[in-house]
Nucleic acid binder design. Structure first.
Lengths: 224, 224
DNA sequence: CAATCATGATAGTAATACTATTATCTATAA
DNA sequence: TTATAGATAATAGTATTACTATCATGATTG
């Protein structure tokens, strides 16, 4: 199944999905950010890599922060899309929460193709770079430009599932954002700062899932 | 009570605590990072602000990333110090966990003076910038240089308290790091991206404390 | 009094993060 | 078929950042 994800036009100057060069920019950005880290990634290096010029890249994105934003918003949109797809027929909230957790640890087989995007590398970028989007001095402007909408939508969607499970749960939004962040952070920690976790790097997905579901259900079941 | 916090010499080229200029660098960095955000903060601006030269600042810190690291490690060290101080006489793990949570939301009165450091601004910097220390491409080298030791020590200390409360708890480290991160993130979200939380900005400390203690005790009490 | 150490003053470099201008090439609409 | 609009390439240039190097000065210490 091929999907085309449409993102908020605020995220780009020129839609990268609409041209070969644009798709190339996305594809190679993902590869290069994965390889170099966001800090060392530059438009100049990217341009050299795909045999175009810096100026051409600037026609698509104002700067590299916006480009990262595009990529990560693509991820959130895709996640919500998947979540809706997998939970569409399932009426059982427990099962829906488990599906969510599987998605968050990136365990489910992907049903959607988007040829120029490497999902593995994208996931990797999200775990290590996504915080940089909002922990800035310009959060408020960016927020007004709706740059975090896909993330907020996903969290809202998750909070609804929590409230299906426990109608009177007071912290559904905070739990949603915490669960998402924790999934990514703990994965990163397990790999690079293992003493901050209780996981074995080799069994990370299984153990992290256990932790996340322990977290979600402990909190949702606590009637105090 | 005046405290002097000694940090790992890997964090600086020349100990900023040992000179007027050094202390000035720390003091004004905190103010400027708070005001400009880390991205826009530069050694040039800092030097201009305290009437010294860029070159002089470089004699203390290799670069601004290292300076941020110094500041944030100061915070973690100070936090652990406080935690030990407040829980030293208290044998009750429940109470210790509550003390921890109060510290994490920055609610307790500070017993320690360190004249050139503005604690409020420091806390603010930690909530919005601390992730940038480890979410880099050079985590591993930095980790080997022991740049995260104070944070890891604090989390370990917290995990011990969790295990005092529940001897057989399997996720004490992950819960510790999650709780710390969550305290900061939710605070930031409540302020700038409130739809990711369930908190009222004006009652943030009370409500966040409720959430964090709900989280900690739900998880620690869940015997499944 | 000599030595050394910290800071200041000044200069310079490579890389980054852009902006601007003009030329070329291509698709399509008149 | 030709005109033209639109996209990209080629090239150049600027301000700022993130440093490094050198030398002078002034304070401290042995």
């Amino acid at each position: 199944m091929e999907i085309q994800i449409r993102l908020n036009p605020n995220l780009y100057l020129k839609d990268p999905e609409q041209s070969e060069l644009g798709r190339n920019i996305i594809k190679h950005s993902i590869e290069m950010i994965h390889e170099l880290g966001f800090e060392s990634f530059t438009f100049k290096k990217l341009a050299a890599n795909i045999n175009t010029t810096e100026a051409s890249v600037y026609r698509y994105f104002e700067n590299k922060h916006r480009l990262l934003s595009y990529i990560i918003n693509w991820y959130w949109t895709w996640m919500e899309y998947q979540f809706n797809f997998y939970t569409g027929n399932v009426k059982n909230p427990v099962q829906n929460i488990n599906i969510l957790i599987s998605l968050l640890v990136f365990e489910l087989d992907d049903q959607f193709i988007s040829s120029h995007i490497s999902k593995d590398k994208l996931y990797n970028i999200v775990t290590s770079e996504s915080n940089k989007l909002y922990f800035t001095h310009h959060v408020e402007e960016d927020n007004q430009a709706r740059m975090f909408k896909p993330y907020k939508d996903l969290c809202h969607r998750i909070s609804l599932v929590f409230n299906e499970y426990n109608t009177s749960y007071r912290f559904s939004h905070s739990l949603a954002s915490t669960l998402v962040e924790t999934a990514h952070h703990q994965q990163f920690f397990a790999r690079y700062l293992p003493s901050l976790t209780d996981f074995d790097k080799r069994k990370i997905k299984t153990e992290l899932k256990a932790f996340l579901s322990h977290m979600a259900f402990s909190m949702l079941d606590n009637k105090k």
